[in-house]
Design a binder for these strands. Structure first.
Lengths: 361, 361
DNA sequence: CTGAAAGCGCTAACAT
DNA sequence: ATGTTAGCGCTTTCAG
């Protein structure tokens, strides 16, 4: 299989030039006579030399050409959510242009994956970072790997310096303005005349559960998008009658939560789900219970996904620019790799009315 | 940012040992006195040495610890399909155990991504490989990268040696027995009394289109799962009245195809879709047209996905072991990397009756 | 059990 | 325009 593959030195010898010249023939990064280059390439062809070994290049250049992407969950779950996918697609687009590859790093809660600790990467993109004490972030910081955090937090201003920052590691943050987004959404519902709200929430933290939230949990810890979106609801002056926490942003969890809420006596007139997948589950639950949306109950989501199978209903929601978020993260990663600093990015969201909200009966 | 990070040599110097000894302290691959090791680790801690630089290790060992996964499409599309995701999840599981990372390589049709040509990887997993002339496979083979092909073909027996094989590259193949799966499914429908079939097909090849297939296309080229599943239908002795090709395995395309078929005068009594996503689109189309499933039309799929939002319908389908396929591919990749040879794997599928099929009216 | 030496394959100053 | 030299950071014989 590997009876000493040819190296650049072999090619150079055969072409009768020095290794450095042969190197130039491939990289084009320097002056070289066309005839010489052709001679080198011919020699390479004869030896079936497949081009410079990336491992050698990487060590020499001190760069791997790889950005690690850390998911806060199993791929199976992360990727069932179009939200992650579209983001990843945007990320791949940007990084692809720069010939940078994406190393997938699934991270079960509470553990630091071996890849985080040992894989070669020029930068890392961390999703759903929990907070400044996140072990993954700490490990990456210790390794001196530059990070861009999506929808996360590397330590608020009150902490002074963040974990990573204090270690002198360059970081960047990309997120959306979800707080203002939900506030706007809820205000619209209020304007329609709704006064009694139910909320189907994203997970609060690693201990994912289905049901009413644990009242003893620390409200200052847990997943940031969840906290921000709940804060947005409060900003609109609404105190929900009932909140159901779900273990993941999946249709079936939305359905369960929806049934839980809607089968109570005298249920709320409006249900705000913190993601579109959850919201569509609530719509399905309503259908199952024989309730009409929006006549009997209004349902709203968050994300702005395209959900053709929910037809004829079209969710009222808050659209976030998912692919753009990924692209921005990619840009930030490239910038960090090149040693530039990057301002934090907060992308705007947009209220997007659909057919699932109306005045209460 | 990078004012000369400490190296193993620095650590060794500070601990008063040689680099080789320091190396042993980290790798544990050799005899070393406990006290010496502690001294080295202490020195490392003092210098904030984050452990051996993977780039150095990789060059020295000749291994990157990375397996590239080549998708035949944009991530956005590949990953909207749970079929790819569950496979990837199984793959990640197996590779993760061996501390091998997954490098994501999206590949637009007709181009060879830079990562395929230049990224460091110990092996590659290629999805939806088109056939022995696939450029991606050829490039990987030229680079001497071992490959495991999923649902693909590296050159049938009739071609003699495959592209890769002829170049002396070790390869492996993992796929499901989809031909026999669809045959079984269609025979069940025949047993119910159906005689007039419509087929909603997966894409035939890179030129993805929606509509009746181009009659001039070469039937021996194109995506293999599509060809095998169509062959299974023929095996059951059925010649469909109408076949609609779709550009991708997505609900909306199934819906379009379903409307196309079902709004004809005197439509077929059974529609076989070559994937569950397509089939569920057909179910939605039937609902829209006011047709009852399975009373007015039977619909069957392929894959065995869990589709809660299709409730109350449950697809009649053929279940394939998706995560297991990924795990097998992972095992194969590891084996190839370790220089072992791997027998081809054909995983069995299982007929799985649901509520969407019944005798014709 | 530890150290010295060699070299993985490549690139980039620098000198010619 | 080409060659010479010096490593990038690490692991691994091979002696001691």
């Amino acid at each position: 299989m590997n009876p000493s593959r040819p190296t650049l030195a072999d090619v150079a010898r055969r072409a009768g030039v020095s290794v450095s010249t042969a190197s130039l023939a491939f990289s084009g990064a320097g002056p070289i006579a066309a005839t010489t280059r052709d001679r080198v390439l011919a020699a390479a062809a004869e030896l079936a030399y497949p081009g410079p070994n990336p491992l050698g290049q990487q060590l020499r250049r001190g760069r791997s050409g790889i950005v690690g992407v850390v998911f806060g969950d199993r791929l199976r779950r992360s990727f069932r959510d179009p939200v992650s996918i579209q983001m990843l697609d945007g990320l791949a687009q940007t990084l692809g242009v720069h010939d940078v590859g994406i190393l997938l790093i699934p991270s079960e809660a509470g553990e630091v994956p071996a890849l985080v600790a040992h894989a070669a990467m020029d930068a890392a993109v961390v999703l759903l970072c929990n907070g400044p004490d996140d072990e993954v972030v700490a490990t990456l910081a210790r390794r001196g790997i530059r990070m861009v955090v999506i929808e996360g937090d590397l330590g608020g201003p009150e902490e002074g310096a963040s974990v990573a920052g204090s270690a002198g590691i360059a970081t960047a943050s990309v997120r959306i303005d979800d707080r203002r987004g939900t506030e706007r959404l809820v205000r619209e519902l209020c304007a329609l005349g709704h006064e009694r709200f139910g909320v189907v929430s994203l997970p609060f933290g690693h201990d994912r559960r289905l049901g009413e939230p644990d009242p003893t949990r620390d409200p200052r810890s847990g997943y940031l998008p969840t906290r921000r979106r709940l804060a947005g609801i409060a900003d609109a002056g609404v105190a929900p009658e009932i909140v159901i926490e779900t273990p993941a942003s999946l249709v079936e969890h939305g359905r369960s939560a929806g049934i839980e809420i809607l089968s109570r006596p005298n249920p709320p007139t409006a249900i705000v789900a913190l993601s579109d997948l959850l919201a569509s589950g609530v719509v399905l639950a309503a259908r199952e219970l024989g309730l009409r949306v929006p006549d009997d109950v209004s349902v709203a989501g968050f994300d702005g996904l395209d959900l053709p199978w929910l037809a004829p209903d079209v969710l009222t929601t808050v659209r976030q620019p998912l692919a753009e978020k990924g692209r921005q993260a990619g840009q930030a990663a490239i910038a960090l790799i090149e040693g530039r600093t990057v301002p934090d990015v907060v992308l705007p969201v947009e209220y997007q009315p659909g057919t699932t909200t109306a005045p209460p009966r």
